[in-house]
Structure formats: structure tokens, C-alpha cells
Design a protein around this nucleic acid. Structure first.
Lengths: 221, 221
DNA sequence: AGAAAAGCGTACCATATGGTATGGATATGA
DNA sequence: TCATATCCATACCATATGGTACGCTTTTCT
């Protein structure tokens, strides 16, 4: 009887499962509030109210507002990372794949949730140093690593010149984020028009290929 | 008697001058608080306390927290713009000047105040739509325009290929902001080490020249 | 069936918030 | 000199905050 308990690390007991469900719901509600209101403007009371539940329950799951916030950021970045891994589909020739990958990255990065998350991180990074680190490692870093893997194989195939794949990936991503993303962040636009995104992608790839094509001039020694 | 009053638009009366001084002090204190605490976490009471003055005085100058905030952003962006105009000194040959100009822009952009302001704008742009517009027009836009002016003359001299100067300027600035600025925003570093800034500049210029040098390949039609 | 866990509802706490009102001190302008 | 503009200090307001406490019901485990 005890054996069954021990061999399963996932929650078996129904109680535990229900509790995790509740926790999940709390995190959803809290995430929504934090992402669209910011940290300071989000109140525990309003979260409890939105839950339909009581404050006691809230505090039984998270001992403080700060702990809740950290859990939310943790989960949001994890979700972000999960969405990213869907992107890398390297079927087809290089330039087709490159464009598809860029489009995938752009779509994730420009999504309202990602923009809200980015805003929140930038806003609170000064006050919550760990948060910036978590986001950085799970967000941008993962994106670069995924891209770098793809670019690395292209380097091996001699399609683009050999260089640090991670540097190349960072370069490409920063090129993609130069226009629409900036304007979204500063509220100049509410959503990125597809044609503008397309233009960003094309420009980014053009500059990237101009820099990294196999026959391109070396930039540094 | 009325004439004297009318011909001078600057504050003549000592009362008025004192009042403006007080207003200036309020704006300084408020700016500091908003920039390092964010909007929601900054309290009017704490500002009044830091002033040494009373709340009555505060509210006699600004009818609400929101009004104070707008005035602060207005002034901060104006100050930012003033600092920018110091940058453009086009003596010397093109590449020397280009590097100096980039270094100047980087120095402004990476300064703690500029980073705080950028953070605040990004954080609150969703809630204060006008603020993003003000910042955008007085900050990035001015920077681009200054740079564009310089690049435009370089185009006329045939040093770089003819293109939309504003586009080229935006491109160069976005290249400069790709690394250190990002890391500062996300709290990965507390200040940008000079050698990293130097590296950012060199990379940006290399890519820029690779793209815009007179003999570079056209990127788009 | 009965113990325990989890959640709910609500009342409560000290504190702080944005904002108002008032009365007095001080400097300024006519 | 004298009215007035400005400021300061303080007390105050309704409301809201993060967080605690407690008694009650429902669900789960044994």
C-alpha cells in the first residue's frame, strides 16, 4: 500500500491534485493581474476576490505578495520557453527555414502576453534582481540557443560563414526586435500590423545575410 | 505699470520666481521618486515629506498625482533632449565622427537616469498612452533626427550610399542598443563596463558600414 | 464512520493612501 | 503699512492595503 505512494512522484492523492488545481487557478488570475496592472498596482485582495475564494486560501498557497509574484514570473517564463520550442522546424532549405523561424520568434515576441511580460520585467528588474535573471535565462537566452543550434548547422553546411553561433543568433534576434517590438513597448502602436512584421523580418534577414553570408566580408578579427 | 508686466514673459515678480523655484524642487524630488520607485509605488505623502514642505503646497502646484507624473515625464524628456544636442560635433573625418557620435549617444542612453526613464516609460506606456508618445518624440525620435542629419551629409559626400537617412539612423541606433542596453534594462548588469560599450559601438559601426558603405550591396529595391 | 485537510466567508488589524480643510507664519507687492 | 500670496504644519477624511484569525462546510483519506 505504501509502495503505490512511493513509486509515483506525481500527485496521486486527490486532495493534492485539487490543491494543485487551485494553485494553478491562483497563478492564472495573479498572472493576468500582474501582467496588465504591474506589481505595485496589483492587490492581493483583488486577486482573492477575482478567485471567488477567500484570502485565507490565497495565503495558504503563497505566504506573501512577493512570493506569489515570483511564482507568477517563474511560470510565465516557463510557458514562454515552452512556446518557443515549437518554433524550430528545420525542414526545407536554409532561407525558407530562416524566414519561418524568424517569423515564429517574432510572433511569440510580439504577442500581447510576451510584451506584457517584457514590460513587467523591465519595470521591476531594478527592484527584483532575481526576476530579471530568471526571465533572461528562460526567455532571450533560450531563444538564442534554439536559433544558434540552427545557425550552427548552417555554418557546418557552409551556407553562412563560421562564427560564434550564439553571437549570430543574438544579432539576428536584436535585428528582428528593432522596430515593431520597440514601438509596442513604448505604446506607439497597440499591435503590430502583419506587413510591418514582414518588413522587419525581411530587413533583419537581409542585414543578417549581408553580414553572415559565406562570402561576406569579415567584420572583426 | 501694466506695460512692464506685459512685455516680460519671464517671471518678474519675486513671488512668482519663488513659486517657480518651489515647483522646480517639487519636480526634482518627484522625478527621483518616480524614476526609482515607479509610478504606483511613489506616494504623494512621501514626496511632500521629502520636500520638507506640506501637502497643501504640493497640491497647490499639482492638482493630482497624475498631473505631477505627467509634468515629471515632460521635464525628464526635455532634459534628455537637451543632453542629446550636445552630441553632434561633426569635426573630423567621417569614421572618427561617426564613432564619437555613437559613443555620445551610447553614453546618454546607458546613463542611469536614461535607463530609469526608459524603464518607467516602458512600464507605464500601457496605462499612460500619452507618455509613450511624448517620450518617443523627444527621445528616440530626436536622436534619430540628429544622427540622420549627420548621415545625410555623408550621403551627399558619397561616403555612404544614398538611402533614407532616418532609416539609416534608426538602424544604427538599434544596433548600438542591442547588447549593453538590453542587459541594463533587464538588470543583468548594474552598469555597462566601458570595454563592453566600446565593443558594442565597434560592432554596430562595422555592421552599419557593411550595410551602408558606398560600395555595399543594396539590401532592398 | 471519523479524522484531517482544504477551502470559504467574514470580520478584523495596523497602517498607508490620495486628497481636503484650516489656521497661522512669513515674505512680497502696492 | 497693509492686503495678499505663498507656504507650512497639522489634523482629518474615506478608502484600501497586506496580512491574520476564526468558525464553518465540503471533500478526501484511512
Amino acid at each position: 500500500m505504501d509502495m503505490i505512494k512511493e513509486i509515483s512522484c506525481a500527485p496521486v492523492s486527490r486532495r493534492e491534485s485539487r490543491r494543485l488545481d487551485r494553485r494553478e487557478i491562483i497563478l492564472n488570475v495573479a498572472a493576468q493581474s500582474f501582467l496588465e496592472q504591474g506589481y505595485a498596482s496589483t492587490t492581493m485582495s483583488s486577486i482573492a476576490a477575482a478567485l471567488g475564494g477567500s484570502k485565507g486560501t490565497l495565503w495558504s498557497h503563497f505566504p506573501s505578495k512577493e512570493a506569489l509574484f515570483e511564482a507568477v514570473i517563474d511560470r510565465a517564463t516557463a510557458a514562454y520557453r515552452a512556446k518557443l520550442s515549437e518554433i524550430l522546424d528545420t525542414r526545407g532549405d536554409f532561407s525558407t527555414t530562416l524566414k519561418r523561424v524568424c517569423a515564429g520568434i517574432m510572433e511569440k515576441i510580439l504577442s500581447p502576453e510576451a510584451v506584457s511580460l517584457y514590460r513587467l520585467v523591465v519595470a521591476e528588474a531594478g527592484r527584483f534582481p532575481e526576476m530579471g535573471r530568471i526571465f533572461y535565462n528562460r526567455g532571450p537566452r533560450r531563444t538564442w540557443e534554439l536559433l544558434a543550434e540552427f545557425l550552427s548547422s548552417a555554418m557546418n553546411d557552409g551556407i553562412i560563414r563560421r562564427a560564434d553561433p550564439l553571437d549570430a543568433a543574438r544579432f539576428l534576434v536584436s535585428l528582428c526586435m528593432a522596430d515593431c517590438h520597440q514601438q509596442l513597448l513604448m505604446g506607439m502602436i497597440q499591435s503590430a500590423p502583419p506587413e510591418a512584421v514582414e518588413r522587419d523580418i525581411d530587413r533583419a534577414i537581409a542585414v543578417f545575410m549581408n553580414t553572415f553570408a559565406a562570402d561576406a566580408a569579415r567584420l572583426d578579427g
